[in-house]
Structures are given as structure tokens and as C-alpha cells.
């Protein structure tokens, strides 16, 4: 049995150093490409429970705080978690769009935080096939016209192929690793797979840092990927 709780510090503790780190993350995403703004942003990680969902929900909260129209798409169809982070019942969602051809707008939940959500709904049998279908790509492209930002939460890279598939139709990927948890070789292998697939990696987020223990470091540390290479 798995228990987890998500914190949206940007909403719950807007003045905390952690939420400030997410604002900095938003700024860095914006600065990553001034000519071609990053509208559709994917979060992923190497292994499970590295903090990708926490990053997705907090980044979305920064957009909402700035008055931007934002939606989170839960494309982790195998282990969906967005409903837990926003305390919603996962009874309708993406499944109904794919299988029953329901209008996507009837499936989107408007959360009180100002963030829109597309949950997964029932379980789909072949997520990787569905995620690379033209139907889904068209849907994401339609939503591009209606939203300022689309944040897509996807499964870990090393678990299944889904994240690599989605990375092909997003503007940028945020790669999350958990401090003191994600194994270095795993983090590296996941990154290499994304690169080999031509993913546009905007940067990395180091999650799980205890602010009280690490003086001089904010709770979530953002590093620009290209700088890391230097």
C-alpha cells in the first residue's frame, strides 16, 4: 500500500523559500528560449517518487498566480497522481476522451486554485500507443490555442517509454531528480535516453532538499541544463 501527500507550497505557503524557488524555475523556463516561448512543458524523472508531480503542480501554481491560463494534463496513465494532489475523484478524464470520444472541454476540471486539470479517468490498456496517436497530439495542439501554459506530468523515463513519446510534441522537458534519493547512474541513464530521442530539455530540478539542513540552498534548486554541461 502506497501513501503519499503532495504539497503545493506556492498555494499553501506563498512566502516560503520553497515557493520562491518555483518562481525562479518559472523565470528560468521563460528565459530558456526568448524567441520561442515554452508553452507546453513536460515534467519527468528517471525513477518513481523523484518529485516530478510536485514540480508540475507547483510550476502550474506559479502560472496561475501570475494570472496565466494554465492546465495540467496527467499523462502518467499508469500511476496517475494529479487527482491526489488536488483532492479530486478520478472518475472521468482522458480515458473518456480516448475511448468514448467525449469533448475534452467537458472532461476538464476547473480547480479553485485557478489551475485546470485533465485527469486520467479509467485505466487505459495501452498508454504508449494512445500517447503517440494523432488524436492525442491534435488535442494537445488544440489546447495550445486556449491556454497560456500546458504542464504535462509523465511517467519516469526508466520505467516505461511514455515520457519519451510525449517529449516529441512538447516545447520543453523539465527533468527532476530527488536529492539523496535518485541514484546518480539512473539520473544519467534517463537523461541520456531523453537526449537520444531528441527531447528539448530545458533544465533540471533537484527536489527534496531540506531547507533547514542546507544553508545557502533553497528548497528546490534549479539548474540550467546547458550550464551543467560546461
Amino acid at each position: 500500500m502506497e501513501f503519499f501527500e503532495y504539497r503545493n507550497v506556492v498555494i499553501e505557503f506563498p512566502n516560503s523559500p520553497e515557493s520562491e524557488a518555483y518562481r525562479k524555475l518559472e523565470l528560468n523556463v521563460r528565459m530558456s528560449n526568448l524567441d520561442l516561448p515554452c508553452k507546453v512543458i513536460q515534467t519527468t524523472s528517471a525513477t518513481p517518487q523523484d518529485g516530478k508531480t510536485t514540480t508540475a503542480i507547483n510550476l502550474a501554481a506559479v502560472y496561475a498566480e501570475k494570472g496565466k491560463k494554465v492546465i495540467i494534463l496527467d499523462f502518467d496513465l499508469r500511476r496517475p497522481k494529479i487527482q491526489r494532489a488536488f483532492h479530486k475523484s478520478n472518475d472521468v478524464g482522458f480515458f473518456d476522451f480516448v475511448v468514448d470520444d467525449k469533448d475534452i472541454h467537458d472532461l476538464i476540471i476547473h480547480d479553485g486554485s485557478g489551475i485546470d486539470l485533465l485527469l486520467t479517468g479509467n485505466r487505459l490498456s495501452y498508454p504508449h500507443i494512445v500517447l503517440q496517436s494523432q488524436k492525442v497530439i491534435n488535442m494537445v495542439n488544440e489546447l495550445r490555442k486556449e491556454y497560456d501554459y500546458i504542464v504535462i506530468d509523465t511517467p519516469p523515463v526508466l520505467s516505461v517509454t511514455d515520457a519519451l513519446i510525449v517529449s516529441k510534441y512538447v516545447d520543453g522537458v523539465i527533468y527532476v531528480a530527488a536529492y539523496n534519493q535518485t541514484r546518480k547512474d539512473n539520473a544519467k541513464a534517463g537523461l541520456e535516453q531523453l537526449q537520444a530521442n531528441g527531447a528539448q530539455i530545458i533544465g533540471g530540478v533537484l527536489a527534496n532538499i531540506d531547507v533547514r539542513k542546507s544553508s545557502g540552498l533553497y528548497g528546490y534548486y534549479y539548474s540550467n541544463y546547458s550550464n551543467e554541461e560546461d
Binding site: 500500500m1 491526489r84 483532492h87 475523484s89 478520478n90
Partner: peptide
Amino acid sequence: EEDEDIPEAINNLTAK
């Protein structure tokens, strides 16, 4: 056997 995700069930019901 644990054939349902109980925390998920609790989430879905309390959310409603």
C-alpha cells in the same frame, strides 16, 4: 488480496 488501491478509493470518495 490487495486488488484495489485503498488510498485511491478513499481519495475518490472523500473528494466527492
